[in-house]
Design a protein around this nucleic acid. Structure first.
Lengths: 154, 154
DNA sequence: CTGAAATACTCAGTGCGCTGACTATCGGTC
DNA sequence: GACCGATAGTCAGCGCACTGAGTATTTCAG
């Protein structure tokens, strides 16, 4: 009976939340374009001509993952990559017309899905929900690398 | 400028939260055993002899995913599968001594990690955090299948 | 007792997400 | 102007997570 209650484990809650969202997205928004792919489209609507690394930074994905997501969007013809003439290492990314149309369409559906997803919460609770999750995520993202935390063993 | 603010998109927040947790887990808890794997160990500490499907239900994983997680734990010698003599379709799962030891060790580290992860929140805020996320996840998990939601297109 | 539905599990395919090792380019120093 | 470190991107490998299709076993209707 040394078992623990997972309902007080933020990691487990986060995973369940993300999973539930994934399923709802699939039924209410798109079976083709995923939520991370939409995040990338959105970043490029806000700032056309970003390079891969910076897009990854904006949406919170590492270099490998962002490369795969972008290559899928590229294959679907939603964006195109172009070598930066001023820095041969970079690719500059821009949405195609099709990419812009897709973003517009999904923006509408996403708003609708969020209403359903957040239905259990009152307006005030939603604000708190965003605030609390945002603070925890921000803090944890700022925790990267500092001197081997596995040090304090037990 | 039709771009959207992802900080008010629960799916995006959930993904960031989960990612940040994943990284912290890796540094503070274990590089070998993942958070979902720990959830499975925990479920089997609470209820030894469960079958795969039920474990999946307890921790919120589908049949395919739970099968992979369990086969990894099996390969590591943390649990063993045994055909249910009363129902040849099922495998009954039990932790090995090694599995029990691992669960005990990780329970301690996980508690420590959760303190760090939740550090930005006060005690009251943590309660609210668990409550809000739990309610949204519960509700969304209860939304499965009901008559094709993609129907209401826009 | 036999055939059909239900159930537990497996397998192939796709996508997200990370690390570590590698290549190519750039930028600065000597 | 040649090296050296930093940076952008690729690739292989592992793990989580889902769907859809397929196998084996059980259960229930007749």
């Amino acid at each position: 009976m040394a078992a623990v209650d997972l309902a007080t484990h933020p990691g487990h809650l986060a995973r369940r939340l993300q999973q539930a969202h994934y399923l709802l997205w699939n039924t209410m928004v798109s079976e083709e374009i995923t939520s991370p792919q939409f995040a990338v489209l959105n970043a490029l609507v806000a700032e056309p001509g970003l390079d891969q690394r910076t897009v990854g930074e904006r949406v919170g994905l590492d270099r490998s993952t962002i490369a795969e997501v972008i290559s899928r969007l590229d294959r679907r013809g939603l964006l195109h990559k172009e070598r930066d003439p001023r820095d041969g290492r970079r690719f500059l990314l821009r949405l195609t017309d099709e990419g812009l149309r897709t973003h517009r369409k999904l923006t509408v559906r996403t708003a609708r899905m969020n209403q359903v997803f957040l239905a259990p919460l009152s307006a005030e609770e939603r604000t708190v929900f965003f605030d609390l999750i945002g603070r925890v995520a921000d803090a944890a993202e700022g925790l990267r690398d500092p001197a081997g935390p596995l040090a304090a063993q037990g």
